[in-house]
């Protein structure tokens, strides 16, 4: 059996474990909620994770089409880029996949040189994934700063100010 076939066979278990590990990066009360609430609109974070991780895994074991990978990684990282995570924590969940796969395939790969070689190749795909994740993270952070800088409200206010239409505190007569 090729690694690809093996991973396909174990897909459900691998994705479930990956989801679990990512969800466990949140505090206990939160991870409980992320796992249990199944409604996609009541629980957008949990749902985005579940859908996204599954799709990313599929893609990694398959064509590894960059566009598709980005389209599923982006929503996850877009969320984590705002939450209380350092950059390494926000994207580091990608590496969980390495450990999980090693664990899940330990029995089969033992003593099987062909599978082991395939595994090395596969792990480099995960490294690639992590780099993509980091790019997305940077784009999200840049977007946040861009939004902060450009909020229409501020722009308009500045325009008003320039036109001398807003009174400054300094102009206030003493009272």
């Amino acid at each position: 059996m090729s690694l690809k076939e093996l991973l396909k066979k174990k897909e459900t278990a691998i994705v479930a474990q990956w989801f679990d590990r990512v969800v466990n990066t949140y505090q206990l009360d939160t991870s409980r909620f992320l796992k249990s609430q199944k409604d996609a609109f009541a629980n957008p974070v949990g749902n985005t994770l579940l859908q996204g991780l599954k799709a990313v895994f599929d893609e990694t074991t398959d064509r590894m089409d960059n566009e598709t990978v980005i389209s599923f990684l982006d929503p996850i990282i877009r969320i984590r880029a705002l939450q209380d995570f350092s950059a390494s924590k926000a994207v580091g969940f990608v590496f969980f996949l390495k450990e999980i796969i090693r664990e899940q395939t330990a029995k089969e790969t033992q003593g099987n040189a062909a599978l082991q070689a395939e595994m090395l190749l596969f792990e480099s795909k995960i490294d690639e994934l992590a780099l993509t994740a980091f790019d997305i993270y940077m784009q999200c952070r840049e977007k946040v700063y861009e939004i902060k800088a450009n909020e229409v409200r501020n722009r308009t206010f500045t325009a008003f100010h320039r036109a001398g239409l807003v009174a400054d505190w300094e102009e206030e007569p003493r009272h």
Binding site: N24, Y26, L28, S86, S88, K89, G92, F95, F96
Partner: peptide
């Protein structure tokens, strides 16, 4: 937020204390 490289991977999997 800056960690030493060997701390990095360990920390990404760090579960917040309960």
């Amino acid at each position: 937020d800056l960690l030493k490289p060997d701390e990095l991977l360990a920390r990404t999997d760090h579960r917040p204390p309960a």
